[in-house]
Design a protein around this nucleic acid. Sequence first.
DNA 1: CGCTCGATATTCT
DNA 2: GAATATCGAGCGA
Length: 206
Amino acid sequence: MTACLPSSFYGRKTEDVARDLVGMVLAHTLRVGSKMHRLAGVIVETEAYGHADDEASHAYRGVTRRNAVMFGPVGRAYVYFTYGNHFCVNVSARPPDAAAGAVLIRGIEPVEGIDVMKKLRGIGDVRLLASGPGRLTQAFGITCVQNGTDMTDCGSELCIEKDAMREAVATPRVGITRATEKNWRFVDPSSPCISRRIAGVSWQVK
DNA sequence: CGCTCGATATTCT
DNA sequence: GAATATCGAGCGA
Protein backbone atom coordinates (compact mmCIF):
# COMPACT_ATOMS: atom_id res chain seq x y z
CA MET A 1 0.00 0.00 0.00
CA THR A 2 1.22 3.41 -0.87
CA ALA A 3 1.74 5.90 1.96
CA CYS A 4 -0.83 8.64 2.31
CA LEU A 5 0.18 12.30 2.39
CA PRO A 6 1.28 13.60 5.84
CA SER A 7 -0.20 16.66 7.55
CA SER A 8 2.96 18.64 6.63
CA PHE A 9 1.78 18.45 3.01
CA TYR A 10 -1.47 20.21 3.93
CA GLY A 11 0.05 22.81 6.27
CA ARG A 12 1.11 25.13 3.44
CA LYS A 13 -0.48 27.86 1.33
CA THR A 14 -3.84 26.51 0.18
CA GLU A 15 -3.20 27.29 -3.50
CA ASP A 16 0.15 25.47 -3.37
CA VAL A 17 -1.53 22.42 -1.86
CA ALA A 18 -4.23 22.59 -4.55
CA ARG A 19 -1.64 22.69 -7.33
CA ASP A 20 0.39 19.83 -5.82
CA LEU A 21 -2.66 17.61 -5.34
CA VAL A 22 -2.99 17.35 -9.14
CA GLY A 23 -1.53 13.91 -9.90
CA MET A 24 -2.08 12.45 -6.41
CA VAL A 25 -4.47 9.52 -5.85
CA LEU A 26 -7.73 9.70 -3.91
CA ALA A 27 -8.74 6.33 -2.45
CA HIS A 28 -11.96 5.29 -0.73
CA THR A 29 -12.43 1.84 0.78
CA LEU A 30 -16.10 1.07 1.27
CA ARG A 31 -18.63 -1.71 1.53
CA VAL A 32 -21.04 -2.26 -1.35
CA GLY A 33 -23.48 -5.02 -0.53
CA SER A 34 -21.44 -7.69 1.24
CA LYS A 35 -18.09 -6.90 -0.40
CA MET A 36 -15.41 -4.34 0.41
CA HIS A 37 -14.14 -2.36 -2.53
CA ARG A 38 -11.24 0.02 -3.04
CA LEU A 39 -12.12 2.93 -5.31
CA ALA A 40 -9.20 5.06 -6.48
CA GLY A 41 -8.25 7.57 -9.13
CA VAL A 42 -5.83 10.33 -10.07
CA ILE A 43 -6.84 13.86 -9.08
CA VAL A 44 -6.81 16.01 -12.22
CA GLU A 45 -8.75 19.12 -11.14
CA THR A 46 -8.77 21.10 -7.84
CA GLU A 47 -9.68 24.53 -6.48
CA ALA A 48 -8.26 26.41 -3.48
CA TYR A 49 -10.54 28.26 -1.05
CA GLY A 50 -9.14 30.64 1.56
CA HIS A 51 -10.53 32.61 4.48
CA ALA A 52 -10.71 36.39 5.00
CA ASP A 53 -8.66 36.82 1.80
CA ASP A 54 -11.24 35.00 -0.33
CA GLU A 55 -14.78 36.28 -0.78
CA ALA A 56 -15.79 33.10 -2.64
CA SER A 57 -14.89 30.79 0.27
CA HIS A 58 -17.44 29.22 2.60
CA ALA A 59 -15.08 30.30 5.40
CA TYR A 60 -15.14 34.00 4.41
CA ARG A 61 -17.85 34.99 6.90
CA GLY A 62 -16.53 32.91 9.76
CA VAL A 63 -17.18 29.50 11.22
CA THR A 64 -20.61 27.82 10.91
CA ARG A 65 -21.72 24.25 11.58
CA ARG A 66 -21.23 23.38 7.90
CA ASN A 67 -17.73 24.81 7.37
CA ALA A 68 -16.20 23.99 10.78
CA VAL A 69 -13.75 21.49 9.27
CA MET A 70 -12.11 24.31 7.30
CA PHE A 71 -11.11 25.86 10.65
CA GLY A 72 -9.91 22.57 12.22
CA PRO A 73 -6.75 20.48 11.75
CA VAL A 74 -5.38 20.22 8.18
CA GLY A 75 -5.75 17.03 6.16
CA ARG A 76 -9.39 16.42 7.12
CA ALA A 77 -12.23 15.78 4.66
CA TYR A 78 -14.74 18.65 4.37
CA VAL A 79 -17.86 17.23 2.75
CA TYR A 80 -20.93 19.40 2.28
CA PHE A 81 -24.32 19.11 0.56
CA THR A 82 -25.15 21.79 -1.99
CA TYR A 83 -27.92 22.85 -4.37
CA GLY A 84 -30.19 20.47 -2.50
CA ASN A 85 -28.82 17.33 -4.17
CA HIS A 86 -25.04 17.11 -4.51
CA PHE A 87 -22.11 16.43 -2.19
CA CYS A 88 -18.70 18.07 -2.68
CA VAL A 89 -15.45 16.89 -1.06
CA ASN A 90 -12.54 19.10 0.06
CA VAL A 91 -9.39 18.64 2.16
CA SER A 92 -8.64 21.21 4.84
CA ALA A 93 -5.32 22.93 4.03
CA ARG A 94 -3.70 26.19 5.11
CA PRO A 95 -0.40 27.62 6.39
CA PRO A 96 0.04 27.86 10.20
CA ASP A 97 -0.74 31.60 10.21
CA ALA A 98 -4.13 31.24 8.45
CA ALA A 99 -7.40 30.53 10.26
CA ALA A 100 -9.13 28.43 7.59
CA GLY A 101 -8.76 26.97 4.11
CA ALA A 102 -9.56 23.94 1.97
CA VAL A 103 -9.00 22.42 -1.45
CA LEU A 104 -12.07 21.33 -3.43
CA ILE A 105 -11.47 18.16 -5.44
CA ARG A 106 -13.29 18.72 -8.74
CA GLY A 107 -12.14 15.98 -11.11
CA ILE A 108 -10.65 12.49 -10.96
CA GLU A 109 -9.40 9.99 -13.53
CA PRO A 110 -10.73 6.58 -12.35
CA VAL A 111 -8.10 3.84 -11.86
CA GLU A 112 -9.39 1.18 -9.43
CA GLY A 113 -12.95 -0.04 -8.89
CA ILE A 114 -14.27 1.37 -12.17
CA ASP A 115 -17.09 -1.17 -12.35
CA VAL A 116 -18.34 -0.13 -8.90
CA MET A 117 -18.14 3.55 -9.88
CA LYS A 118 -20.22 2.84 -12.99
CA LYS A 119 -22.81 1.15 -10.81
CA LEU A 120 -22.91 4.02 -8.29
CA ARG A 121 -23.21 6.58 -11.11
CA GLY A 122 -25.60 4.59 -13.27
CA ILE A 123 -23.59 5.36 -16.43
CA GLY A 124 -20.80 3.70 -18.41
CA ASP A 125 -18.73 6.55 -19.91
CA VAL A 126 -15.48 6.73 -17.89
CA ARG A 127 -14.98 10.38 -18.84
CA LEU A 128 -18.23 11.25 -17.09
CA LEU A 129 -17.74 9.07 -14.00
CA ALA A 130 -15.88 11.57 -11.82
CA SER A 131 -15.36 14.73 -13.92
CA GLY A 132 -17.02 17.26 -11.62
CA PRO A 133 -17.36 17.71 -7.83
CA GLY A 134 -20.88 16.27 -7.61
CA ARG A 135 -20.08 13.44 -9.99
CA LEU A 136 -16.96 12.27 -8.19
CA THR A 137 -18.59 12.09 -4.78
CA GLN A 138 -21.34 9.94 -6.29
CA ALA A 139 -18.80 7.71 -8.11
CA PHE A 140 -16.72 7.29 -4.92
CA GLY A 141 -19.68 6.84 -2.58
CA ILE A 142 -18.68 9.92 -0.54
CA THR A 143 -21.40 11.56 1.59
CA CYS A 144 -21.56 13.72 4.71
CA VAL A 145 -20.76 10.52 6.65
CA GLN A 146 -17.12 11.10 5.65
CA ASN A 147 -17.11 14.73 6.84
CA GLY A 148 -14.17 15.23 9.22
CA THR A 149 -12.33 12.03 8.22
CA ASP A 150 -8.59 12.26 8.94
CA MET A 151 -7.04 11.82 5.50
CA THR A 152 -3.49 11.80 6.87
CA ASP A 153 -4.28 8.51 8.66
CA CYS A 154 -3.47 5.68 6.26
CA GLY A 155 -5.99 3.53 8.11
CA SER A 156 -8.90 5.84 7.22
CA GLU A 157 -11.47 4.69 4.71
CA LEU A 158 -10.73 7.88 2.77
CA CYS A 159 -7.19 9.13 2.08
CA ILE A 160 -4.92 10.70 -0.52
CA GLU A 161 -1.76 8.90 -1.61
CA LYS A 162 1.39 10.21 -3.17
CA ASP A 163 1.76 9.52 -6.88
CA ALA A 164 3.46 11.01 -9.92
CA MET A 165 2.80 14.76 -9.98
CA ARG A 166 1.23 15.98 -13.17
CA GLU A 167 1.46 19.24 -15.03
CA ALA A 168 -0.99 21.70 -13.44
CA VAL A 169 -2.32 24.79 -15.23
CA ALA A 170 -3.88 27.63 -13.17
CA THR A 171 -7.28 29.01 -14.32
CA PRO A 172 -10.17 30.98 -12.79
CA ARG A 173 -12.48 28.98 -10.51
CA VAL A 174 -15.79 27.56 -11.72
CA GLY A 175 -19.30 28.39 -10.53
CA ILE A 176 -18.47 31.41 -8.36
CA THR A 177 -19.44 35.08 -8.72
CA ARG A 178 -17.04 36.71 -6.23
CA ALA A 179 -13.21 36.82 -6.18
CA THR A 180 -13.23 35.70 -9.80
CA GLU A 181 -9.82 37.30 -10.37
CA LYS A 182 -8.02 34.57 -8.43
CA ASN A 183 -6.56 31.81 -10.60
CA TRP A 184 -6.97 29.19 -7.89
CA ARG A 185 -8.25 26.34 -10.05
CA PHE A 186 -5.65 23.81 -11.14
CA VAL A 187 -6.13 21.24 -13.90
CA ASP A 188 -4.09 18.71 -15.82
CA PRO A 189 -5.13 19.83 -19.32
CA SER A 190 -4.09 16.49 -20.85
CA SER A 191 -6.71 14.57 -18.86
CA PRO A 192 -10.06 13.66 -20.47
CA CYS A 193 -11.68 13.71 -17.00
CA ILE A 194 -11.82 17.40 -16.07
CA SER A 195 -15.18 19.12 -15.64
CA ARG A 196 -14.60 21.96 -18.06
CA ARG A 197 -12.08 22.71 -20.76
CA ILE A 198 -9.68 25.62 -20.38
CA ALA A 199 -11.24 27.76 -23.08
CA GLY A 200 -13.56 27.72 -26.03
CA VAL A 201 -17.31 27.83 -26.49
CA SER A 202 -18.04 24.20 -25.61
CA TRP A 203 -16.57 23.73 -22.14
CA GLN A 204 -18.65 20.95 -20.66
CA VAL A 205 -17.24 17.45 -20.88
CA LYS A 206 -20.04 15.56 -22.61
C1' DC B 1 -25.73 21.45 -29.74
C1' DG B 2 -27.53 25.38 -26.30
C1' DC B 3 -30.90 26.96 -23.11
C1' DT B 4 -34.12 26.51 -19.11
C1' DC B 5 -35.46 24.39 -15.05
C1' DG B 6 -35.98 21.35 -10.93
C1' DA B 7 -33.97 19.31 -6.78
C1' DT B 8 -34.28 21.75 -2.05
C1' DA B 9 -29.63 22.06 2.25
C1' DT B 10 -27.35 25.77 4.13
C1' DT B 11 -26.46 30.34 4.72
C1' DC B 12 -27.23 35.18 4.05
C1' DT B 13 -30.25 39.34 3.59
C1' DG C 1 -37.06 35.36 0.16
C1' DA C 2 -32.59 34.87 -2.55
C1' DA C 3 -28.16 32.91 -3.60
C1' DT C 4 -25.15 29.02 -4.00
C1' DA C 5 -17.94 25.77 -4.80
C1' DT C 6 -24.00 21.24 -9.34
C1' DC C 7 -25.99 18.00 -12.43
C1' DG C 8 -29.00 16.07 -15.71
C1' DA C 9 -33.58 15.93 -17.99
C1' DG C 10 -36.39 18.08 -21.39
C1' DC C 11 -37.04 20.92 -25.26
C1' DG C 12 -36.11 23.52 -29.45
C1' DA C 13 -33.02 24.69 -33.35
